[in-house]
Structures are given as C-alpha cells and as structure tokens.
Amino acid sequence: MKILLRGVTRKFGSQTVLDAVDFEVGFAHTLALIGPSGGGKSTLLRLLAGLDSPDAGEILVNGEPLPQDEESLRRHRSRTGIVFQAYNLFPHLSALGNVMLPLTAVHGLDASTARDRAMDVLKRFHLAEHTAKQPGQLSGGQRQRVAIARALAVDPAFLLLDEPTSALDPEMTAEVLDVIAELRESGKPIILVTHEMGFARRSADRVAFIAQGGVLECASAEEFFDNPSKPVLKQFLERILKY
C-alpha cells in the first residue's frame, strides 16, 4: 500500500495541526503512527479515512487522489475499515446488528447473506457466543473486537485503527492486539495509531513519528526504535520507554 501527502495542511481555528506535510510511504502490511498526544495523528487518520478534508494539499492512496465531494468521500469511507479509540458501536443494536448494518444499508447485501457473512467474521474473532448482546453487555475488549469485525466484514481496501486499545486495561489490550496481529493474515493493509511500542516494533513494517505539525521520521521498525536519527524522536522514545 502507498500513501502520498503533498503539502497537506489542516487548521482548526488559529491552530495549524498539520503544516504543509509532504510524506510518502509504501508498506506491505502495517504502518504504525506514533507520537505525542495532540501531535496530529488522529487528524491525519481522519483525512485518510475521508472523515475530514485538508484545508490545502492533496492526498493520494495507492496513486488515487482522495475525492473532494461528499458523495465520493462517503464511497471512499464505505470501502475503508475505520476503528476509533472507543464508542464505535451503535448501543441500540446487538453485536450482530452492528456488523450487519453496513452490509445491508451501505453495501446492498440481503439480510440472510449479510447475517452469514457477519456470523463468519464474529466467529473468527471468538465472538460467537456474544452475537446477540448489545454493546452495553460486552466488555471493552469485546466491543473493540466487534468494531474490528464490523470494519473487516465489508471487505475494505485497508483498515485505519486509531488507538484501538487506549481505553482498555492490559488484559483486554492483549486480546485486541491478538486480533490485530491476526489481521495480518487477512492481507489487508493496516494503518495503526498506537502507544503500544512493543506491538508497533513487532508487527509494523514501517513506523512514522508525527509531531510538531508533520511527519518527522519514517523508517522500518528496527531502524526507528534502535537508531532514531532525530533528537525529538530520541527524547520521545526515552520518555515513553522509561517505565
């Protein structure tokens, strides 16, 4: 998968979160985005997802520029698997209902085909006995696994995961990271924002450091963690790996 950013700028009021970012990266399976809080990781991910548009510049995914108009953006979103940190699921629908909704409403599958497909994905993520439960009856880890199942069920071109484990305790974090590691085998490219440095190092092909309004470094996982070239990144890694 290839991502290309050309002069991408995104401002909120007077605050410039992404400042004329030029960035190009290719990776086979997983790109990890790391960086300090408020550095613009989620903003970048939302641009890639088509949930938001840049104020200036251009984004190309696999050589295709992201569209400008809402209808094409909606189609782009429907072919992209997106998982946020929390509150992904619709609380009035069961786990199964959540996974089925995009299949029936957006992708035009009939109910029984959608149900079969949703059940397959839920089973794959060991959620078979929870399909009838509403999100309020699931643990945080189960909710995130359902959210990932929902994103994957539509057979997206790629997946965008924004800190999917940040709201979870260590045990649930492990259970969700297991699922993400398993996704590698599905062959879907993943862009993952995470604070789990160990996981990033083990499973990412490329790691990018986002801070101060741009992408300050992008390298293979070993190089990124073992030989960080920029002093800011060194400092960031020292601080975060201290404990």
Binding site: R74, I82, F84, Y87, F90, L101, P102
Partner: peptide
C-alpha cells in the same frame, strides 16, 4: 453523542440513513 455520527459516517451511511438507522 457526536461519536455516533462519526461511527455512522465511518461505515459510509448517508445522512438520511444515519437518522433512520442510528
């Protein structure tokens, strides 16, 4: 919540569908 609108947009629902299903 705002997050419901975000989730609905993320899976590709139109505004009308978001009102109807979510």
């Amino acid at each position: 919540g705002r997050s419901q609108w975000d989730s609905a947009r993320a899976i590709g629902l139109t505004t009308t569908q978001t009102y109807r299903f979510v």
